[in-house]
Design a binder for these strands. Sequence first.
DNA 1: CTCTGTTGTGAGATCGTTCTCATATGACTG
DNA 2: CAGTCATATGAGAACGATCTCACAACAGAG
Lengths: 372, 372
Amino acid sequence: MSSEAEGVRRSKRSQPTINDVAARAGVSRATVSRVLGGYGYASEEVRERVLGAASDLGYEADRIARTMRSGRSDTIGFVCADISDPFFSNAMRGICDVALDKGSQVIVINTDDQLTQEQAATKVLAAHKVDGIIITPVSVRQHDHIVVAVDDGLPVVSLDRHLSNAGVDSIVADNEHATVDAVNHLIGRGHRRIGFLSSAQPEEPPVLRIGAQRASVSGPSRPSLDRVRGYLRAMTTAGLPIARELISFVPQDEPESRAPAVVEMLELPDRPTALFTADSYLTKSTFAVLSERGIAVPGEVSLLGFDDLEWTTLVRPRVSVVVQSSYEMGRAAADRLFAQLGNGHPAAPSGTRTVVPTTFLDRESVGACPTR
Amino acid sequence: MSSEAEGVRRSKRSQPTINDVAARAGVSRATVSRVLGGYGYASEEVRERVLGAASDLGYEADRIARTMRSGRSDTIGFVCADISDPFFSNAMRGICDVALDKGSQVIVINTDDQLTQEQAATKVLAAHKVDGIIITPVSVRQHDHIVVAVDDGLPVVSLDRHLSNAGVDSIVADNEHATVDAVNHLIGRGHRRIGFLSSAQPEEPPVLRIGAQRASVSGPSRPSLDRVRGYLRAMTTAGLPIARELISFVPQDEPESRAPAVVEMLELPDRPTALFTADSYLTKSTFAVLSERGIAVPGEVSLLGFDDLEWTTLVRPRVSVVVQSSYEMGRAAADRLFAQLGNGHPAAPSGTRTVVPTTFLDRESVGACPTR
DNA sequence: CTCTGTTGTGAGATCGTTCTCATATGACTG
DNA sequence: CAGTCATATGAGAACGATCTCACAACAGAG
């Protein structure tokens, strides 16, 4: 009933606390917490008084204090190479959508594919007491920091890369299969000399072993490697020879080397009649080179790429591509993470590998192998 | 010296606390805090012991507890319509880069241009005790929730939109000027009938007033409106008539209406010889329609757009555009925010309007006005 | 009438920091 | 020798929520 004290309100940063609500409702903090938290007992009369007081004051629980006490922050972390990359920003959108649904927020950290930054990121996120982390690990070998986080009980989901025996769930596209299908499509159109272009992690350049009967690539599962594997498998299965010069890896951190790599392949004595580009960067560079040199697509050279981007339907010919939905992959990663969170005690992560399907969009850049 | 207790470590979620460090160093919490916080006195000997203990334990201060006590969270919020939109993801990257530099993290929330979601977002971020917010407000009229936040002492910077008299700093491109220059460029090439296509916020469709001598558009400053203003000013200044049918607004939330709007303009009895598209969506739709219909660019129709995207140099002709660096705008917004944070007590935001320059990229889609 | 159980409430510990304040010691000054 | 400093440290109070526990009050059972 004291109307005078009400008018005085400190203007700067003074959200009402649970004490204010308790005082206004004439009950204790514990009772307010019980009513608002929806647990324990509370008489109907008290419940109404508390709810009324809370809404009168515009009370909103301080998340930080809540986290302090309960350990849950309703916040997850997303660690990626570069949020301005469409793959990650789309995945981010998927993650955010799921998080919103679960009442969580998302903190983003870019690593620029630097291991040190990734290590720092996991530490910072742990210090922020995030409930879990979705990460696209820089390296599939050096991931001690991730294992440490998992051991500390922090749920982690790996996006677009699979960490073997790290006990981390992962969400990946069916890269190998999709590539097999795509290359088979080219083979089906009569192509025999099919070039393969891919970006490669500078730290772990792929090592190819090309034998008479078999070709293989060493290293753990990661998109670029799995796609080479798909290429090798499709070629081998079709009984086609694997030529070293038809496989080109461009270091991820040397964008300026992409066009030269494409040029080099096009200037081969026995030029490939089809090109499979394993990522959007190389699809773009390849298309640009082809277009600049006036090489007819698909008349002289067919082009088939991985990843769909806005421009692929804007250019002529429209580019045929294998699509992986980064948005769906983001959603899947978040779903997986919240599933782990749901199990009260974060059950020992089983290291489940969730494979997200890809789609083949047959457009205009692939044609029959030109006859000579 | 007790080596047995050391071996026992709880595996789940048990980061060492400042108490552990204090115990190991044989000092009090306060001393540890002083050494680690770098303030007050501490003897060289104690300092070393503390530092040693902290590093032995791998101690990292709990950010949540720190926030609890100090009020600073080293976290800022970014509220945008859709993080998967290149404009926002690039801005986000800029914000993250600056934040990283300042030792802060960024929480992203998508609003899908929904006012209710934006209101919820500001509340949640306040509850998370973020140090400040960068926001691209859905509406430049209904922003009570933003004013409330500012009044509560939460620094806010508005990105890409200016809120008049809300006391909020803003970062915007020089939309009007850039458009004047761009349209002047078209006029300089002899064009007289220049079409203008833009997206419009569904809630506040622009109202045009077209008089004999003057044309104007009502409403507060926001990119789409400022660009129409630029168009009107350039046309008026050049003494060219403003024709209502040459100005088309497509509701932002109706992507399916874009192509029809372009078609409608191209089928005008006296078809425009040049088109200025005020945002990337319409640039894309316009290019697609032009290309599908086989209309020669710039032979029959010239095209000039706002915003640069990957595809504009991949297609033929390459599209001439006005570029605003969303990355730089993001950086500028973050710089502004941290500048406010720096002033100990967040000085009353002056409502400063920072204008980020644009660049005109003259490529191949603009040509001389065809003679009939 | 005592005992047990349900319902309702509050006191107070707790989470891990930061930071104020009190206190202690030695050195130096007048 | 008392008084004033600078140096060095620790005790303990916040911050705002959650949640355990203790305790009432009252019902119904034995």
